[in-house]
């Protein structure tokens, strides 16, 4: 056998090689201190990593998290759709509502979002340029939703628009995730607009104080995930499928 490769030595160290090959490597290692040292190095990294991170798996799970998971699991029988306490961050009703049924989920989320948007509107100029939930998005945003590929971003009035992804709902409706960072207010609105009869409707939006660097905090991401789950959205489309899906959009102005 020629000098074993690093990948072979690593697989040997991990016990992943078939017995005959493992026996050969063991023989080579006995005769070659360099090979032995390389094997030990792979083992040492694994041991250090496992040892250092071991205590994390022994930590007690925070009660709020455990409770939230149990509540989601039991959601089908729960009558009271109260908000899961997960202080100090806001837990939108979507956490509890996702299993209650599509209609109920939508109502709860839209109710919550209307409140968010009302606040956003008072707080900053940028939010005004998006739309009210359930209505058309502005002509400017509609134009960008119809034409810009995901991953791109552009300036709009008083704000910055970032296209995140395009998905298809279970009925085939194309929907786009996007973020609007309002200049100066530190607010980020994350939304999903869906294309129906050639027009973009804002289905859900979450306004949040932007984290450092202008990105929405993870909890607003979770709200959108709950919504995507509710509409049966598939995986994000690749560039070609996205272009195809967006070809159904007519110019908004």
């Amino acid at each position: 056998m020629e000098k074993p490769t690093d990948t072979e030595l690593m697989a040997y160290a991990d016990g992943e090689l078939p017995a005959p090959l493992a026996a050969k490597i063991a023989e080579i290692a006995r005769a070659d201190p360099d090979v032995q040292r390389r094997i030990e190095r792979f083992r040492a990294v694994r041991a250090q990593l496992a040892q250092t991170l071991q205590p994390l798996a022994e930590e007690e799970v925070p009660e709020a998290l455990r409770r939230a998971v149990l509540d989601m699991a039991d959601g089908q029988t729960a009558a009271d759709p109260r908000v899961v306490a997960f202080a100090p961050r806001v837990r939108p009703p979507a956490w509890r509502a996702w299993q209650v049924g599509l209609a109920a989920s939508l109502l709860l989320m839209l109710g919550g979002v209307a409140g968010f948007l009302a606040g956003a509107r008072q707080a900053g100029e940028g939010a005004r340029s998006v739309a009210a939930v359930g209505s058309h998005v502005s002509a400017e945003i509609a134009r960008h939703l119809s034409s810009l590929p995901s991953g791109s971003d552009t300036g709009i009035a008083d704000a910055h628009l970032r296209l995140i992804a395009t998905v298809l709902a279970s009925d085939g409706t194309p929907c786009r995730e996007f973020e609007v960072d309002s200049t100066g207010t530190g607010r980020t609105s994350t939304g999903i607009a869906c294309l129906r009869d050639g027009s973009w409707f804002l289905d859900i939006a979450v306004a949040a104080q932007a984290a450092e660097g202008g990105f929405a905090p993870a909890s607003s991401f979770a709200t959108l995930e709950a919504y995507l789950l509710a509409i049966g959205a598939g995986e994000p489309l690749d560039a070609a499928a996205e272009a195809q899906a967006l070809s159904a959009a007519t110019p908004a102005d």
């Binding site: 970032r162 995140i164 992804a165 995730e177 973020e179 984290a211 450092e212 660097g213 990105f215 929405a216 905090p217 993870a218 607003s220 991401f221 995930e225 994000p236």
Partner: peptide, 14 residues
Amino acid sequence: AWIDEIRHGAVRGP
């Protein structure tokens, strides 16, 4: 879900 988050840019906060 983590990969989705990276794609979403949401992990680039604090």
